[in-house]
């Protein structure tokens, strides 16, 4: 049997398979949750599940941009921590300036993203090293600024972004603000990849930077934008995290690896060229459903790491096996 050489239709097909893998996994895991706790079928609890999953999904969407272009962003967790600490120090309980400070936070995030992108694109430092460096740098700055402990205070109008739930919404029952933010962010991220020329460029650059450069794609700009999107997603997730859980110095710890894991579980290919916003979204939802399930099962916190490791390897092994069978 002969195969058509890799052309556009085959990549589209890969995209659809990625969607199915992540979605199927999420449905299976959520069904398992419902089996133990039937109340999770109620729209209210499902909305609450989405609310708590929102930061991870948003981070995964941002991380996906970087992964598509062939890199990694290890600095997301540090940026989220910085956002939580900086917000509490800058606002310090004064609700009047919340919106101005949120603008400042996005400014800081964009600065970190630009720095990552510029270093990778022009100094040619591999992104895993660059973002490891910025992770240390941003974490150090955040801790030095706050003196190593949470201080300051977040006013209600800031925290509401993460924890407010609108009641009696027609058709839905309850609607958390965080879910609106989640849907908005995912829609924008989807549009960026599927509705603009940027999405095609990102895939091309991740697949073969040299070829896309020869074809006229602005490789450096594509990479830099990906890192900025990733940093913006980290700021957004940080704002929601500050709303849920208040101020702490390890608010964002380990989130970068969870975001990478989410993209990969959903079927995105590390080192670029393959993946869709759905792989990030459903990968992150699957991962969060897994955490929820393990909590319900009452397993010790420590085993969560182990099971996450097993799932991670299994998900990628299945993808690798499918790809091998196809070629």
């Amino acid at each position: 049997m002969t195969r058509v050489p890799q052309t556009t239709p085959s990549r589209r097909r890969a995209g659809r398979i990625a969607l199915n893998a992540g979605l199927v996994m999420f449905i299976v895991l959520y069904a398992a949750i419902v089996l133990f706790q039937p109340t999770y079928l109620e729209p209210g609890l499902f909305m609450n599940f989405l609310r708590r999953a929102a930061p991870l999904v948003i981070l995964a969407c941002g991380q996906l941009y970087v992964i598509l272009t062939g890199g990694f962003d290890l600095s997301m967790g540090a940026v989220a921590t910085l956002v939580v600490l900086a917000a509490s120090i800058l606002i310090n309980g004064d609700p009047e300036i919340t919106w101005a400070v949120i603008g400042v936070l996005y400014g800081m995030g964009i600065a970190v993203g630009l720095m990552n992108g510029l270093v990778v694109a022009f100094l040619k430092v591999p992104s895993i090293i660059t973002t490891l460096g910025t992770m240390l740098l941003v974490n150090g700055l955040a801790l030095a600024w706050s003196g190593g402990a949470a201080r300051g205070d977040l006013p209600d109008n800031f925290r509401n972004l993460g924890r407010l739930v609108w009641r009696d919404v027609p058709g839905l029952g309850t609607l958390p603000v965080a879910v609106v933010v989640l849907v908005g962010f995912v829609t924008l991220a989807w549009f960026g990849l599927n509705g603009t020329v940027y999405g095609k460029r990102a895939l091309a650059v991740g697949d073969n930077p040299r070829a896309s450069e020869l074809a006229g794609a602005p490789v450096a700009a594509t990479r830099i934008i990906a890192f900025v999107v990733s940093a913006v997603s980290a700021v957004t997730a940080g704002i929601l995290l500050g709303g849920f859980s208040g101020v702490s110095v390890n608010a964002g710890e380990g989130l970068e690896l969870q975001a990478i894991a989410a993209c990969v579980i959903g079927g995105a290919q590390l080192l670029g060229g393959r993946g869709s916003i759905w792989s990030a979204t459903f990968g992150a939802l699957s991962l969060f459903a897994l955490f929820t399930l393990l909590n319900l099962l009452g397993l010790p916190q420590a085993f969560r790491d182990s099971i996450q490791g097993v799932i991670l390897i299994a998900a990628v092994a299945v993808t690798a096996w499918r790809r091998r069978r196809r070629t």
């Binding site: 690896l257 590390l270 916190q301 085993f303 182990s306 099971i307 996450q308 490791g309 991670l312 990628v316």
Partner: peptide
């Protein structure tokens, strides 16, 4: 995992690391 399973080394070793860490902590 890396050589015969064709799994990206970052993910494979991140996974085994998590497994070891979890068992150890528990």
């Amino acid at each position: 995992l890396v050589a015969y399973g064709g799994i990206n080394p970052l993910i494979a070793t991140l996974g085994t690391g998590l497994i070891i860490q979890g068992v150890l902590a528990a």
